[in-house]
Amino acid sequence: MKSLWMQSKAEILRIVRNPYFVFWSLAMPILFYFIFTRVLNGDMPNLEEWQAHYLMSMAAFSVMGTSVMTFGLRLVQERTQGWSTVLRTTPLPGAVYAASKMFAQMLLNLLCIVVIFTSGWLINGVRLSASQWLMAGLWIVIASLPFLALGGLIGCMKKVDTANGISNVLYMGLAISGGLWMPFEIMPEAMQRVGKWLPSYNYGDGAWSIAAGGSPSAVSMLILLGYLIAFMVISGYVRKKQEAV
């Protein structure tokens, strides 16, 4: 228990001290939120709705980014720098290490959500009911699991540069085609048809539904669950192959 706590504390410190985390997970989403709800919102018919909707988009964007980029890259770095090997010479169980990483990640995701929600409240005076805030926050944390698994898959890559490039493309691609950056409805129809099957769209859609007074659809949940299982199975397979030397 003590080692779990110490390790989690260390992981949290490491993530918070990473300038990329602060930039991508906090500064960027808040800046985007400001730009797209205060500066470029001229022709939005129901502004209040849009402000709540886009707040959800940005919170999802932030947490997805932390999971895919920070988590995945960190895994690659630790391996290439030999850090994972060092840890394997210590009595720290691998499971505790993995658990503390997950725990730290979850806690920081929660922190990002609170900060971004608060900024939405401060910037635009977004008002949702207490249960809506809570449900949206919970959804964004829990439904981020497929992205953590995707991060884990990126974490199997051999080189930091490759992992960095690929995770950037995935992150941006998923964010844009999933409608996290701009409204899904203004995208070409063909893109929308593909986008509906992406984890990012279903992730965002759950939060949007909650903000609009509904709840995440069963289809979204199933699709996200499918991605979670797929990513976990693939990375399990890749890891096994890498270890079989």
């Binding site: 850090w83 090997t85 010479t89």
Partner: peptide, 13 residues
Amino acid sequence: GAMLQEVAVMDGL
């Protein structure tokens, strides 16, 4: 206790 060839130091700590 072990000291490996490439002494990696965890970043951020």
